[in-house]
């Protein structure tokens, strides 16, 4: 077992129950918020590019231009008139997702997975009346969920039906893969699966599970819940380690293409894997969080520094070269495959 090996090397200290010293964290290459902002976000992500990723309509249009698969848009609600007849606009759609186009952190997303008579049903089984639906859409239009409370549009799109391999690992909500990149080199990836506590959402600080994925192979290597390593899903009891994510190469290609199309230096790309359509680009995040390093058990610094050096050496590397570099250098110690 690799875990016991590292534990033997690293002697636990009494204070590890409460905190880590800055030098210990630096030793492990952990990146803090200040470091992320000052060294990676601010110099590489010019403010004007944020509009591309903060507005989902623009991101989607751009992604289609670059030949990426995205979830089909059913309709975009831009005015209160359409908001009032949303249930008619969606006639014949069995399942769909409603999102604010400028939302962040999963705010304001409503998933409907089937209809029951006049009403709609959420994955949790809660029924939603057409009135509730109209209301949710008007709230989105009023800017309740958007950054800075700006007026917003509501986007209604195809509900991704993830492969059973993935749905088995998540309590309700569909798990998504996040790939973090610097200068177009994938540096770290994780799968985020919801729990009963996170209520269908995949934000780790709300109690979702983060599953670290090996960049080279796409196999899950480690999982954390509330910052602590786990091996099994807290609600479902299923083993989370040693799972091979399907279409891994397509996912990496998609992620790197997102970097090329947005021009952002440091970004995270969220991808969902549909049972029939394969990987779909969901959104691009210009300020990806730091929990991914805990999910992988590796400080981001250890991966960002080699990329910075490589980028300085060869600033015009193409997509394939970048992926090859990442696969070669960011290989994790693989666990026994599950089953």
């Amino acid at each position: 077992m690799p875990d016991t090996e590292t534990a033997a090397v690293e002697k636990p200290k009494w204070w590890h129950r409460w905190f880590r010293t800055p030098s210990e964290l630096r030793e492990m290459g952990v990146v803090g918020i200040n470091m992320r902002n000052a060294r990676f976000l601010l110099p590489n992500n010019p403010r004007r590019l944020y509009e591309l990723v903060d507005n989902k309509l623009r991101t989607k249009a751009l992604a289609e231009e670059f030949g990426m698969t995205v979830a089909e848009t059913y309709c975009v609600v831009r005015n209160p008139h359409d908001a009032n007849r949303i249930d008619k606009l969606l006639d014949g759609r069995e399942a769909f997702v409603i999102k604010p186009t400028r939302g962040s952190g999963g705010k304001g997303i409503m998933v409907i997975y089937k209809r029951e008579g006049k009403n709609f049903v959420k994955p949790s089984g809660t029924e939603v009346t057409p009135g509730d639906l109209r209301n949710h859409v008007s709230n989105i239009l009023a800017g309740l969920f958007s950054l800075g409370g700006k007026r917003d549009y509501a986007l209604v799109e195809y509900r991704v039906q993830p492969a059973t391999l993935l749905t088995d690992m998540s309590f309700q909500g569909a798990p998504d893969v996040r790939v973090v990149m610097l200068h177009g080199y994938p540096v770290m990836a994780m799968l985020r699966a919801s729990t009963k506590e996170s209520d269908g959402r995949s934000n780790l600080h709300q109690g979702a599970v983060g599953i670290g994925i090996d960049i080279a192979t796409g196999m899950s290597v480690r999982a954390i819940h509330h910052g602590k390593p786990i091996t099994h899903h807290p609600d479902l009891g299923i083993c989370l380690i040693g799972v091979q994510i399907p279409d891994w190469d397509t996912i990496l290609h998609m992620a790197v293409t997102c970097q090329e199309m947005t021009g952002l230096g440091y970004l995270g790309v969220d991808i969902m894997i549909d049972e029939s359509m394969g990987p779909l680009m969901i959104e691009v995040n210009a300020r990806p969080g730091l929990a991914i390093q805990m999910a992988n058990g590796i400080g981001l610094m250890r991966r960002l520094v080699p990329v910075v050096e490589q980028h300085a050496k060869n600033p015009t590397a193409d997509l394939e070269t970048k992926i090859a570099f990442s696969k070669k250098h960011f290989r994790a110690k693989l666990p026994e495959p599950r089953d």
């Binding site: 200040n34 000052a38 390593p229």
Partner: peptide, 20 residues
């Protein structure tokens, strides 16, 4: 504004960080 060190809260946040 140019401080890139850890925040004190991060010392606690990453307390169970272990190298894989």
């Amino acid at each position: 504004g140019r401080y890139t060190g850890y925040r004190i809260s991060e010392l606690i946040r990453f307390k169970s960080f272990t190298n894989a």
